[in-house]
Nucleic acid binder design. Structure first.
Length: 317
DNA sequence: TGAATGTCGGAAATGTATCC
DNA sequence: GGATACATTTCCGACATTCA
C-alpha cells in the first residue's frame, strides 16, 4: 500500500506541522509566512505529501485551500501526534528544571468554589512543585479548549458520551434554591412554589444546560418564567445579587451549602427535581494525559471522599 | 573520501479563479 | 477584459546522507 510505505518511510514532523498550519490558516501564502519559508516551498511540500500518499489532502480554490475528507482525517492525527509531543516535551522540560509538571483544568461554575479547591489542596499536598492553571467557563467553551489541547481536563456537569471525550462520574448533585439570610422565606420551615411567585429571580441564561429543565420545573408547578430576572451563570454574581436583594437563585447543592455555611445565604426548604447529569471529569480521548493531569484526576476523586472530613471542612469554611 | 543521490527551499514565471 | 489574489511549475543552489 502506497500510503503505508510513505508514512513509514517519508512522513516527517515537518509535514504534520505543515498540514496543521494549512488547516489553521487555509492560505498557502500565510502558511509560508508562519513557517518562515516561501509560499512555493509550501506548495511543493504539500504536493509531495499528496503524491506520496496518493490522495488529495486539500482542495485548491481561488480563495485559498480547504481540506478534503482525507486531509481532515490526517490533520486530526497530525494534531494528536503534535499534541502528544508537546506533552512529552513539557514533561521532559519540567523534569530537567526540577519542577513537577503543569496541569490546565477547566472548571464549570458548579464546581469552581467547592470541589476544585479541595482537589487543588490535595494536589499541592502531594506535589507542591506542580503548577496548575484553572480556567472557568461554560461547558461548550471549555470542551472546545479541551479539544484544542489548551486544557488537560474539564470538571463539571458531564457532557454525556460526546465523541472525542472520555468521562468519569465523580458525584451526583442536585440543585437548591437560595435567598439572602434575612429574606422573608428564609426562616420558614416550609416553602411552596407559589410562595416564590412574587420575588425576582437569578436564572441561568437561555441555551445553558440548566435553563431548560428549570423552565420545565416552573411549568410543572404552574409558574410562568419570572419577568423580574437577571440571567447569569456566574456563581459570584448569583450569590452577590441574591445576598443584596430579595431575589431567589439556583445553585448546585454543594455550592449552596457552602454559602450557607459562610453565613452569606440561606438554602430554602424546597426540593427540586434532578435537573442535570452527574458532576465528573472529562478529558480528550485523542491526547495522552501528562503525569500531572493524572495526579490531578486522582486528587479530584480523593477530594470526593474528603468532603465530610473535619480537616477539610475547617479548611474550606 | 569523494561522487551520487536525496532533501529542502528560494526566485521567477506561469496558470487560474474571482471581482469589478 | 483587466486587476487582483493565490496556487503551481520550473530551475537552481546549498546541504545532508549514502555508498563504493
Amino acid at each position: 500500500m502506497q500510503s503505508d510505505w510513505y508514512i513509514r518511510r517519508h512522513l516527517k514532523l515537518r509535514h504534520l506541522q505543515l498540514l496543521v498550519a494549512i488547516d489553521d490558516l487555509r492560505n498557502l501564502g500565510r502558511v509560508a509566512a508562519s513557517l518562515n519559508i516561501t509560499q512555493p516551498a509550501v506548495s511543493k511540500m504539500l504536493g509531495e505529501v499528496e503524491k506520496g500518499l496518493g490522495v488529495t489532502l486539500f482542495e485548491r480554490t481561488a480563495r485559498g485551500v480547504n481540506p478534503t475528507v482525507y486531509g481532515a482525517a490526517l490533520i486530526d492525527h497530525a494534531r494528536t501526534v503534535l499534541g502528544n509531543l508537546d506533552v512529552a516535551r513539557a514533561e521532559l522540560r519540567d523534569l530537567l528544571s526540577g519542577a513537577s509538571g503543569k496541569v490546565a483544568v477547566g472548571a464549570l461554575p458548579a464546581v469552581a468554589p467547592t470541589l476544585l479547591p479541595r482537589s487543588l489542596a490535595l494536589l499541592k499536598d502531594r506535589s507542591p512543585g506542580t503548577s496548575v492553571l484553572v480556567r472557568e467557563g461554560t461547558q461548550e467553551s471549555l470542551l472546545q479548549e479541551l479539544l484544542r489541547g489548551k486544557l488537560d481536563l474539564v470538571v463539571g456537569t458531564l457532557p454525556g458520551r460526546a465523541p472525542h471525550f472520555e468521562e468519569k462520574v465523580l458525584y451526583e448533585d442536585r440543585f437548591r434554591l437560595v435567598a439572602r439570610r434575612q429574606h422573608p422565606l428564609a426562616g420558614r420551615t416550609r416553602v411552596t412554589w407559589s410562595d416564590l411567585r412574587e420575588y425576582p429571580w437569578v436564572l441561568p441564561p437561555v441555551g445553558s444546560l440548566l435553563r431548560e429543565p428549570l423552565e420545565v420545573t416552573f411549568e410543572e408547578h404552574g409558574l410562568a418564567i419570572p419577568r423580574n430576572q437577571i440571567e447569569t451563570l456566574s456563581v459570584h454574581v448569583i450569590s452577590g445579587y441574591v445576598e443584596s436583594t430579595d431575589a431567589i437563585g439556583c445553585l448546585r447543592e454543594a455550592v449552596a451549602h457552602r454559602y450557607q455555611a459562610l453565613g452569606a445565604l440561606a438554602v430554602l426548604p424546597l426540593d427540586l427535581p434532578k435537573m442535570l447529569g452527574p458532576v465528573g471529569m472529562t478529558w480528550s480521548r485523542e491526547r495522552l494525559l501528562s503525569s500531572s493531569a493524572r495526579l490531578m484526576m486522582k486528587c479530584l476523586e480523593n477530594a470526593i471522599n474528603h468532603r465530610a472530613s473535619p480537616r477539610h471542612a475547617r479548611a474550606s469554611g
